[in-house]
Amino acid sequence: MKIQKILFSTKFKELNEDSLRSLFVLKKTGLKQIILLFVIPIDEVGFVPYGGFLKDEEKKLRKIAEDTLNKWKEIIIENGIDCKILIEIGNLVQKTILVAEDEKVDIIAVGKRKRSLLGKFNFISQNLVDLVRCSKKPVLVSKFVSKYEYKGEFITRLNNSVFSNPLIATDWSEPVSKSLKILSANSAVIDKAYICHVVEDKLIKDRSNDEITRIKNESIKRLNEYSDILRKNNIRSETILLFGKANNEIINISREKNASMIMIGTTGKDLFEEMLLGSVSYRIMESSELPILMIS
């Protein structure tokens, strides 16, 4: 699955020009068009109780969007990629998904809320959760500059080479085959890929050694099968089997291997389950400093 068309849905503050530039590398593998989408929130301009629509406010927001998007368009075209600007009014998530469907884009790129002042957690916005939950297209959560604490040190990371060392985190569910297809079709920009699986503690608790060995062997076999697929597409890869708590282990290994991006599947749970019961993919999206490609 070549990435030929990207929908870049922006709120300006969250996804800056640098994030946009980090996608240009995909031109090598066939990126043809970037669609820049800005959604004027309907709450800002519409449904004024008994009043209708704030036309002047809409014009003002449209003008600001046009100025910024036109500058970005010039940069994109200078880099030999076609560009289209769309300014819509409505709900950010609804419009992003509709435009992605109508324009038949390959991935959606979106921004991420900045780290909280407390510095401890990276809170993801509700819009992002909704988008990932509802989108059938892969969603790239871009984080050009990330600050995080690792082994007692505060580190600032620039994610300017998103596709060079992707880490696929798999729980054996369907999205992994999509991840492999994406990497295979874009091998020219990949230096080395990592494929990891975490055997959760709770899965092996109270199991016999024989059973644990069986699970381990089966997991290694599956990981090797994935690795073979990448090798056939000229992508160097390394398989990693881990034991522990999935989100912690995935984040730790991504740091240890200096991965450039984490690719992970979403479970398709509903909002209630996702938020209340938690999900590995959402926790990683929330707490990792790396760009995340969420695949449904």
């Binding site: 519409g46 009043g51 209708g52």
Partner: peptide, 9 residues
């Protein structure tokens, strides 16, 4: 006002 708002939108 909803009709007006959507039409103007």
């Amino acid at each position: 006002f909803m009709v007006r708002s959507i039409a103007e939108e």
